[in-house]
Amino acid sequence: MAKLLYSATASLDGYIAGPGGDMSWLTEHLVGDNPTADNLLANIGAILAGNGTFGGDDPNRGTDSEGAFGGRYHGPVVVLTHRPPAEPTPGVTFAGDLHSAVAQAKEAAGDKYVNVLGANVAKQCIQAGLLDEILMLFAPVLLGDGVRMFDQPGGTRVRLAPVSGETAHWYSVLY
């Protein structure tokens, strides 16, 4: 059965996007081999994204590398939104509530990962006790402001445990 994995690249001060969702800072850090990201990509069966992430900034917009994982992901996408577009988007399913979106993404993923993209959807999954793992890749930059990888003012602590055999920041979520 599919697991829900929140993965993102963050600045060393914990931001996954700059102010206003700006992703341009990431472009210079997407160059070169990344065995962890390559391994992850090979094991993703579906993407679950929020509407802000789905329609948001792409550090590779307008290039052959536009899209998830530098344009290398080609598979099912489920977007959690209360405002689906009037015209359907090929290969994309829109869901109006979290549990429906997760169920559809898990079904599409089969026995692979559902990769959660977007801090808001990841937070909702954590709050609902649905997120299984977190993988954070870090870029050598300090953004100082923007969208945090996990932000829940006044929220409760989330315990994590390293995933066995992984040298990256890959953790199981402990509830």
Rank of each mutant, 00 (worst) to 15 (best):
M1T: 05
A2M: 10
L4M: 08
A8I: 03
T9C: 11
G14W: 07
G14F: 06
Y15P: 02
Y15W: 02
A17K: 03
G18P: 09
G18H: 09
P19Q: 03
P19E: 12
G21R: 07
H29P: 08
L30T: 08
G32C: 06
N34V: 04
N43F: 03
I44H: 00
G50K: 00
F54V: 05
G55R: 10
D64F: 01
D64L: 04
G67E: 12
F69H: 07
G70A: 07
G70K: 13
Y73G: 12
V77P: 05
T81E: 07
H82E: 09
R83F: 02
A86G: 08
P88A: 10
P88D: 11
T89A: 07
T89F: 12
P90D: 09
G91Y: 09
T93D: 13
T93I: 07
T93L: 05
G96D: 15
H99Y: 14
V102I: 13
K106D: 02
A108F: 09
A109E: 07
G110F: 11
K112A: 10
K112R: 15
N115Y: 09
N120S: 14
K123P: 01
Q127K: 13
D132V: 04
E133N: 10
E133Q: 14
V141G: 02
V141M: 01
L143N: 06
D145V: 03
V147T: 15
V147H: 04
G154Q: 09
G154W: 13
R157I: 14
S164G: 10
G165V: 03
E166D: 09
H169Y: 13
W170P: 00
S172T: 11
V173K: 05
